[in-house]
Nucleic acid binder design. Structure first.
Lengths: 205, 205
DNA sequence: TGTACATCAGTGAACGCGCGTTCACTGATGTAC
DNA sequence: TGTACATCAGTGAACGCGCGTTCACTGATGTAC
C-alpha cells in the first residue's frame, strides 16, 4: 500500500472495496457513490476519473464477484473429493461460503438489479460463472439413469434456486427472528434429499 | 369508490395500493413516500394522517401481503386435491402464483428489509403465514417413514427456499436474459424430485 | 544530476433535484340543537 | 329544515439533507533533454 498524498495510488480498487462494504451494509440500492468516495478518503468527483458513474461502479463490483465466484466454484468442484457426487456437494458448500464471505459481491451480482449485459466485461464474467455451475450439474447428470434425467440446465437451476433461497431467507443476518437451522446444514440436507430424488444417493440409508 | 374532493374518502388504502404498485416497479428501497402520495393524488404531508412514516407504510403493505398469502396458501392446501401430496403440490403452485400476482406484496414481505417484528400487527400476520407453511409440511411429513423424516421445519424451509429462489432468480422480469424454463414448471419439477428423495413419490417413475 | 514541462489524478465549489418530515392553516363533513 | 359549531382530513410552504454529476482548477508525478 503506497502512502497518503495528493495521489491515492490505488483509488480504483479502493473505491470498489468501499462500495462492496457499503453494499453489504445497506444493500445495493442503499449504497451511494458519495459515501463510497468518502470511505475511500476522496471527493465524490474523483470517482469519475475511474468510473462512468454510480451504476458502472456497481457493475464492476458484480464483475469481480463473478470472477471470484467462478474460481471458487470451479476449484470446489474439481478438487472436491473422489466422486462426482462428493465434488458436487463441495460445490454446494462453496456456494454458501461465497455468499457468506463476499456478501457485497453477492448482492451486487444477484440483487442489484443491474443487468448482466450492462457491460461486455460483466456479461462475460456472468456467463462464465453460470457456465461453471451448469458444467458441474452436467458432470453429475451423467450418473443419472437417462429416463429420469432432467436437462442439466434444469438440474442446475434447481440447485441454484435452493442455494439462493437459503442465502436470502436464512443466511442473511435479518433483524427479525429466523434461521431455524444453520444454513450450511439446511442446504446440505436439502441438496442431499434432492439428489436422492434423482437416484444419485442410495435410497436405503 | 366515492368522488373526488377535499376529502379523499379512502386515502389510507389508496396509499397502500400506490405503494404496492411502486414497490413492484422500483423495489422496496426505490419506493418513495412522496411518489406514493402523488400517485394517490394527494400531498406528501397527507400521508402522515394515516401512517407514522415511510417505513410504517411499507410495513402495512407487508402485513396485508401476509394476510393474503396465508389465505391463499391455506386454501390451496386444504382444497388442493385428494391426497396430502396433491395438496402440497397445489401449495407450491399457489406460492408461485402469489409471488406473480402480488409482486409488490411479495417484495414488501420478503425483500424490504423491514423486520417482521416492526409492529405487532405485522408480527402476527407474519407468524400466521409462516405457521401455515409449516402446517402443510407437517401434514405431509406424516407419510414419510420416521427414520428418514426430517424435522417439519426443515422440510418446510427447503420448500420455501426453493420456491423463493425460483421466484427471485427466474420469475422476476429481469432485463438480462434468464429463465431457461417456465418458473412454474421448474418449481414443480424441483419439488417433485425433492419429494421423491423423501420417499413420498414412487421411485420408478 | 538538474531543470522544463506535459500529464492527469484529485480538489472544491456549485448545480438542480427529490427526499422525509414539520407546521400552521383551511375547508369539507357531520353532529347538536 | 336550518343554523352553529366541532372535528379532522387534507393543503402548501418550508426545513435541512444528501444525492449524482459538472466544471474549472491545482499540484504531484514522471518523462525528455
Amino acid at each position: 500500500m503506497p502512502k497518503r498524498g495528493y495521489h491515492h495510488g490505488n483509488l480504483r480498487q479502493a473505491l470498489i472495496d468501499a462500495a462492496l462494504k457499503l453494499i453489504d451494509e445497506k444493500g445495493p440500492t442503499g449504497f451511494t457513490l458519495s459515501e463510497a468516495a468518502k470511505t475511500a478518503g476522496v471527493t465524490p468527483a474523483a470517482v469519475y476519473r475511474h468510473f462512468e458513474g454510480r451504476e458502472d461502479l456497481i457493475a464492476e463490483c458484480a464483475r469481480q464477484g463473478h470472477e471470484i465466484f467462478a474460481d471458487v466454484i470451479e476449484h470446489a468442484f474439481s478438487s472436491g473429493g473422489g466422486s462426482d457426487l462428493a465434488a458436487f456437494e463441495a460445490t454446494g458448500r462453496a456456494y454458501l461460503a461465497f455468499a457468506r464471505k463476499f456478501p457485497g459481491h453477492y448482492q451486487a451480482m444477484f440483487e442489484s438489479g443491474i443487468s448482466p449485459n450492462r457491460t461486455p466485461e460483466l456479461a462475460a464474467a456472468s456467463a462464465r460463472s453460470r457456465q461453471i455451475l451448469e458444467q458441474a450439474a452436467e458432470a453429475l447428470s451423467e450418473h443419472i439413469p437417462p429416463e429420469k434425467r432432467p436437462p442439466a440446465t434444469m438440474f442446475s437451476a434447481h440447485i441454484w434456486a435452493m442455494s439462493h433461497g437459503v442465502v436470502e431467507l436464512f443466511a442473511r443476518g435479518k433483524p427479525g427472528g429466523n434461521a431455524p437451522f444453520p444454513p450450511e446444514e439446511l442446504l446440505e440436507a436439502g441438496i442431499g434429499i434432492y439428489l436422492r430424488g434423482l437416484g444419485l444417493i442410495e435410497q436405503d440409508k
